[in-house]
């Protein structure tokens, strides 16, 4: 078994699949990270991805252009994020419940639209949809192992890598990043500093909508070449778990989504050696929960050590940085009371 896994880790094909299945998760996780930093939980990412995947396929089929399809997909995804914002920020609804509602709306709505257009509930194969191109890199291609991993990946895999840089920049270097963090950490203080928290939250929702839109389009126009019902397969939910693991940073999002990507890619291999596929399919979700627990455990421990040091006066004066708590306690307040 260990030999088998070592063999898999050595194969370039495995790492090719890892990158491929990490990319969509990474994109949505970044979306979850940025909204969570502003203090709003976007549980509708799953629905955003579904609509993006479907709209991308439909528009690319009717216009013949994958780019127009992708733009339309992103637009659809942003629309879902904006509806969430409208209800959660303007109409005082519970954001998490709105997310649940929008996901229901999207799982049903996408199948409804697909059936009304094609007469098929399961798959969009009757639509001549287009594919977002795969990129072969001229010289890198010929490098023995690395070439096989990096070259021939879809454009969106690269876009995901770029998104990490962009979100890292937005959160840490741009003014809006400071506003986002201020809003997420202390809304009253942010207001006092002249920040409009609703605007900031809407901004993060739009960004998360764009990211989920790109991820959704990738699923139906790159990862596979069709829309199938429920194509997002819980990735939007996984992103919300991965966001906690990421600890609110774009770099952390890479590691968090890699947990999922590594297991997801391993699942295809384990299936080949006769392990029951059902158990293997459960693996990525199980590992995500475990990652989720381990990270909060470490963070809690670190926090309590820090508190003790603060109490004992051992900490030097300059190092009183606020500790990011990741906002995993989003809606209920019972955790605090229980602890």
């Amino acid at each position: 078994m260990i030999e088998f896994i070592a063999g898999v880790f050595a194969s370039s094909n495995y790492w090719f699949i890892v990158l491929r299945s990490t990319a969509p998760i990474l994109l949505v996780t970044l979306g979850a990270v940025i909204t969570e930093q502003a203090g709003i939980k976007n549980m509708a990412l799953e629905g955003s991805m579904l609509w993006a995947a479907l709209t991308g396929v439909i528009v690319s089929a009717f216009t013949g252009s994958p780019w127009l399809g992708m733009m339309a997909g992103i637009l659809a995804s942003v629309t879902i994020a904006l509806i969430l914002g409208l209800f959660a920020l303007k109409l005082d609804a519970n954001a998490v419940l709105c997310g649940v509602a929008l996901n229901l709306f999207s799982t049903g709505g996408t199948v409804f639209v697909l059936y009304s257009l094609t007469g098929d509930k399961g798959i969009s194969s009757s639509l001549p949809s287009k594919i977002i191109p795969f990129i072969k890199i001229p010289f890198v291609e010929t490098i023995p192992w690395i070439g096989k991993v990096i070259s021939g990946q879809n454009l969106i895999v690269w876009l995901a890598a770029f998104a990490v840089v962009a979100i890292h920049f937005v959160l840490n270097k741009a003014t809006i990043g400071r506003r986002i963090k201020a809003t997420g950490e202390n809304i009253e203080a942010a207001k006092a500093a002249g920040i409009d928290p609703v605007k900031v939250k809407f901004f993060t929702l739009i960004v998360s909508g764009i990211l989920a839109g790109i991820a959704g389009c990738f699923l139906s126009m790159g990862y596979t070449s069709n829309f199938t019902s429920g194509i997002a397969a819980g990735r939007g939910y996984v992103a919300n778990a991965a966001q906690v693991v990421a600890g609110g940073t774009a770099i952390g999002a890479i590691f968090a989504s890699l947990i999922f990507g590594l297991t997801d890619a391993m699942a295809t291999y384990l299936q080949n050696i006769g392990l029951p596929p059902e158990l293997i399919q459960a693996l990525p979700y199980l590992v995500t929960i475990l990652g989720f627990i381990v990270v909060t455990l470490i963070r809690d421990r670190r926090e309590s050590i820090r508190k003790r040091q603060l109490l004992e006066g051992k900490l030097p004066k300059g190092s009183l940085k606020p500790i990011a708590v990741g906002g995993s306690n989003g809606n209920g307040s019972l955790g605090g009371g229980a602890a």
Binding site: V100, Y237, V244, F292, N329, N331, G332, G335
Partner: peptide, 8 residues
């Protein structure tokens, strides 16, 4: 562990 219950 203060894990969001909906996500988990």
């Amino acid at each position: 562990w203060r894990a969001n219950e909906l996500v988990s």
